[in-house]
Simulated scan of single mutants.
Amino acid sequence: MTPVTRPRLLLVEDDPATTDYVRQGLRENGIDVVCVADGNDGSRQALSQPWDIIILDRMLPGLDGLAILMRMRSHAITTPVLFLTTMDGVPSRVAGLRHGADDYMVKPFALRELVARVQVLLRHASPVRHATVMTVADVELNLLTLAVTRNGEKVFLQPQELKLLEYFMRNAGTVLSRQMLLKDVWHMDFPVRTNIVETHVCRLREKLGQSGQSLIHTVRGSGYVMGA
């Protein structure tokens, strides 16, 4: 049986209470949510990997939501975008929609309505937004079957190892800090003392094997990067 792929949503919101509220509501409705609180980080995430939908605040530290949207559309990224903001004036709504937003909601808002609007955008979105097979060097990951191969040979991974590999592959060539991995793979948005990242990276390297030719490299003092 082919596993059901949960939609992936990027939430760019700097208010912790709103973030927790939205994230919980969406996850309860079968949507995986990755949260960032800074506009620059939000722009990097929006441009570096595919998403099924993106929710943007308008006023953000670093880079405002409208600028993020304009960057996306200038790069021909057609991912549906919903603005969730306190900017409720008609000029603000018109600016957001004219620059490529698909929907616009004003705070305070009803969570049920937000979930409904997200579900509508997901139904109307293209069913084939991005490739179902990801490739980095000789490693392939099928996003539908979750099958992993290296140089044509099957690699058997546990669910969390699969999530970690997918995150590395989506961000190939980018140095990923330990905190980024904890936040985006394990959804730990708070400082925590654990070696869970190091343990899983070590296991993933071992399982990918290939005579010691690791594709996941340690960048001393910074984190990890995946690449040939």
Rank of each mutant, 00 (worst) to 15 (best):
D41Q: 15
I216R: 13
A110C: 11
D32N: 15
G42P: 02
R117T: 08
G25A: 08
D52Q: 04
D20E: 06
Q213T: 13
M134H: 12
Q24K: 13
T85K: 00
R129I: 02
V81R: 05
A46K: 03
A37F: 00
G223C: 02
V175A: 03
L97H: 09
K207S: 03
G173C: 07
T19P: 10
G96V: 03
D102A: 12
R205M: 04
L47C: 06
G152M: 05
N142W: 09
V118P: 01
G227P: 11
Q158Y: 12
L165A: 01
R27A: 05
D38L: 02
A67H: 05
Q24P: 04
T149D: 11
R178Q: 12
E113H: 11
P127A: 06
W51N: 13
E198A: 14
T132L: 12
F168L: 07
H200V: 14
T18F: 00
K163I: 03
K107L: 11
L182A: 04
R205F: 00
R203D: 00
M87K: 14
D189K: 13
Y167I: 08
R205K: 15
E206R: 14
M188F: 10
L176E: 10
I31H: 03
G96R: 02
R193D: 07
M188T: 12
S222E: 07
L182P: 07
V148T: 14
G89D: 07
G221V: 02
A125F: 01
V120H: 02
H99D: 04
P191Q: 01
S177L: 05
E153C: 14
A110L: 14
I68E: 00
K154S: 15
Q210F: 08
L146K: 15
V94Q: 10
L69P: 00
A125P: 09
V133G: 11
P108D: 15
F156K: 15
L60C: 01
L181T: 11
W186C: 06
T78I: 12
T85V: 11
V192N: 11
G212A: 10
G30M: 05
P16T: 10
P191G: 00
P80W: 00
Y224M: 00
R123E: 09
A76H: 02
V192C: 09
G212I: 09
V118T: 03
Y104S: 08
M72L: 05
V219M: 03
S48Y: 10
A125N: 09
H124M: 14
A172S: 14
